[in-house]
């Protein structure tokens, strides 16, 4: 079966229902849709195991922070790839920053382990069921999650910086 956005979406919606698969768009040739925390684990497992789809390669995942969106401050983006059909798919899950909990994918893809640790490190997203959810890139005693938009980029210890100049 040739995978197209239509038939893949149809198949997924047939499986998981309209309520769980929303907002399907196609921004750059890769179909993107939203889902929710309850569905995401089953969905990705289904995509991997389905004989027809074989979307069985987790390309990447990352967190995104939208401070302006109420109750949808955080987003987790999953990008999957079917090597067999050369078909890419992007799934997003939005959730409030007050409750940054996501199910882990480590039982489906081994590669999810560090990606989730990275998301935890950067955004403080807690993946339930992750075997070893600790910071991966930053020092363990760091007190905040640096990729959240409210935190500054600059190292505050820098001395030679002259702020008087225009620009940024």
């Amino acid at each position: 079966m040739e995978l197209t956005n239509e038939n893949v979406l149809g198949k997924i919606i047939a499986q998981f229902g309209e309520d769980n698969i929303t907002n399907a768009v196609n921004p750059d040739g890769i179909m993107t849709f939203d889902t929710n925390r309850q569905t995401i684990h089953e969905l990705i497992k289904y995509l991997r195991d389905d004989e027809e789809l074989q979307i069985s390669f987790l390309t990447t995942m990352c967190g995104i922070h939208y401070p302006e969106q109420k109750d949808k401050e955080l987003c987790m983006m999953y990008q999957l790839h079917s090597l067999r059909h050369n078909y890419r798919l992007r799934i997003k899950v939005y959730f409030p920053i007050s409750d940054p909990v996501m199910p882990t994918l480590t039982d489906i893809y081994a590669t999810a382990n560090w990606m989730e640790r990275e998301a935890y490190d950067f955004y403080g997203i807690i993946f339930t069921g992750h075997p070893n959810l600790i910071r991966i890139l930053n020092v363990e005693d760091m007190e905040y999650h640096p990729m959240l938009k409210q935190y500054p980029l600059e190292d505050q210890t820098r001395e030679d910086k002259v702020n008087t100049f225009f620009g940024r």
Partner: peptide, 11 residues
């Protein structure tokens, strides 16, 4: 620190 004037890099 060069180009990396960031929270994680020693200046």
């Amino acid at each position: 620190g060069g180009i990396f004037d960031t929270y994680s890099v020693l200046q």
